[in-house]
């Protein structure tokens, strides 16, 4: 019962934050909304006994990704509010229809291939501790893990390249 309460609270927070993210006019509030959603998801991970993933979720998303977002928002100017008004006719309505249709389709598909609650909640088979996750990560998935290392290195190089080459336009932000 306690778990259900926690779930309802944080699921609500996640949904509200996510909707807020989409609807907020100011990108900073969008970022805050996403931050809230990510935090709630981290709590839900704890609820699902995935402690390590939860910690990484906070460190990576809240700690690094969202900080970067905010950094960039501030770098390129927060007052740059987008002009509203649909580019495609009836865009909002179409968007609403498509999103709700997608949600319905996913739920329908899920119902067709639903997970058959084999584990009653509260009796976890596994514990998402660092030891358990890392056994799997460095055992079965070593090669994949190493390739993500490559991926990150390449991403870092690409970012540096983008920042270095392409400064032919005079820019005032670089002096920050």
């Amino acid at each position: 019962m306690g778990e259900l309460i926690v779930f309802i609270i944080f699921a609500t927070v996640a949904l509200v934050s996510a909707i807020g993210m989409v609807l907020a006019k100011n990108p900073v509030y969008s970022a805050i909304g996403l931050l809230g959603a990510m935090f709630s998801i981290a709590v839900l991970y704890v609820l699902l006994d995935a402690h390590f993933v939860a910690a990484v979720q906070v460190i990576v998303y809240a700690g690094a990704v969202m900080t970067l977002f905010l950094f960039v928002i501030m770098l390129i100017g927060v007052d740059n509010r987008e002009a509203y008004g649909p580019a495609v006719p009836a865009q909002r309505i179409m968007t609403a229809v498509v999103s709700i249709g997608l949600f319905a389709a996913i739920v329908l598909a899920g119902r067709a291939a639903w997970i058959t609650g084999s584990n009653a909640f509260g009796t976890p088979d596994l514990n998402g501790t660092i030891e358990n996750v890392s056994d799997e990560l460095f055992g079965t998935w070593t090669v994949v893990f190493l390739s993500t290392v490559m991926l990150l290195t390449i991403a870092a190089l690409g970012t540096i390249a983008l920042a270095y080459f392409g400064t032919d336009v005079p820019d005032e932000e670089a002096t920050l």
């Binding site: 999103s99 249709g101 329908l108």
Partner: peptide, 25 residues
């Protein structure tokens, strides 16, 4: 965004098509 819209609509149609073919309804 029109591309993204195309992708989204395509996804919906695909899921529904698979469900219809597989008798998921």
């Amino acid at each position: 965004r029109s591309y993204a819209g195309g992708i989204a609509i395509g996804a919906v149609v695909l899921i529904l098509a698979v469900l219809a073919l597989g008798g998921g309804f």
